[in-house]
Simulated assay, not measured.
Amino acid sequence: MLTPVLNKVVIFGVGLIGGSFARALKHAGAVHTVVGIGRSQASMARALELGIIDVVGGDMAQALDGADLVLLAAPVAQTGTILASIAPHLQPATIVTDAGSTKSDVVAAARAALKGKVAQFVPGHPIAGRETNGPDAAIVDLYQGKKVVLTPLAENRAQDVDKVAAAWRACGAILHTLSPEEHDKVFAAVSHLPHLLAFALVDDIANKPHAGLLFQYAASGFRDFTRIAGSSPEMWRDISLANQPALLAELDSYMAQLAALRAHLAAHDGKAIEQVYASAQHARQQWIEAIETAEVPAAPTQ
C-alpha cells in the first residue's frame, strides 16, 4: 500500500468519472480524505453511502480548506461557474484540474474565472468511460491502463503538473501531453464525432413509423455501434457545443465520405466500395494491435 500522497481531495461531480477517481485513489492508499460536491443531494448521499467520498461539501471555504487537489468532473459547460465559486477560496497550495472532454473552452473559462490564480489550474482529460452515470457507476479500476491527457498551461509550475500526473498514475493511468488545441482536434475526430453519429442513428430509427419492428431485429452489430448513444445527453450536448469548430470540420469530412460511398453504391461500383471497406478494416486492425500493445495493465502496487 502506498503512503498517502494527498491529504485532501475535493471532487465536483462524483459519478462515473469523479467517483472512479476517488475509488482508485482510496484503493491505492493515495488520499486521506475525499470531499464530494454536486448538484444532487441524493447523489451526494449515495456517494457517501458507497464510501466513494468521506464528506459531503457544503460551505465552499470549508470544503477547500487544506485541499491538495480539486477535480472538476462535472459537464464542461459548468466549468466556468464552478471555477468562479472556487476562486475566492483557492489557497496557494491547492491545485485544480478537470476531466473535461474539451480543453480550449475549459482553458478560456479558467483564465476568466481564476485570473491571477490560473497557474494553479492544470487541464486534463481521462480517456476512459462508460455509458452509465451516477455514483453507482463508479468503479475502482476504470483508469487502469487507460490514457489521461494533460494539456498544461504556460503558467503552470512543473511540480504542480507532476502532482496531477501522480494522482492519475496512482489510479493506474498512462499519462500523455497535448496542447489544448491539439487535444480538441484529435478528440473531435475519434470521440466527439462517433458520439454524434451514434446519437443521430438511434434517433433516426426511433422516429421511423416502424421503429418497434426495427429495434426488434437490431442485434449485436447495432448494439455495439450505438453503445455510446446511452451516454449522458447533457454532457454530450455540452461537449458538442464546446468543440463546435473542430466537430463541424470532422462532420463535414465524414459527410463527404458518405457522399462518396453513396455515389459508389448508386453506381453499383462494388470494387470501389470494397476498397473503402478493406482500407477501413486494415486501419482498424492496426489500431487494435497498437492499443493492445500500449495499454497493458499497470503493475500491482506493493
Rank of each mutant, 00 (worst) to 15 (best):
H264C: 03
S104H: 02
A206T: 08
E295W: 15
G212S: 15
K8Y: 12
D269N: 08
G145F: 00
T301M: 14
K185I: 00
A113P: 06
G145D: 01
V35H: 07
A42Y: 01
A267F: 01
I291R: 15
A22C: 06
M1D: 14
L247H: 07
H210F: 14
D141T: 13
G36F: 04
G36N: 12
L175P: 09
S240Q: 12
A188G: 03
P209A: 12
F199E: 07
E292V: 09
M44W: 09
S104W: 01
L64G: 08
A290Q: 15
A189G: 01
L201M: 10
L261P: 04
D68P: 03
L201N: 10
Q302R: 07
A283H: 11
G80Q: 07
P88H: 10
T293F: 09
L114G: 03
E49G: 00
A188H: 05
P92M: 04
Q91E: 05
H210G: 00
L247V: 05
A99N: 01
L64M: 12
L114V: 02
L114M: 02
R23G: 04
L247Q: 02
G36Y: 06
L258T: 06
D105S: 09
V106R: 04
G38T: 05
H89A: 08
S231E: 11
I174V: 10
A219T: 15
P75I: 05
V161S: 10
A137N: 03
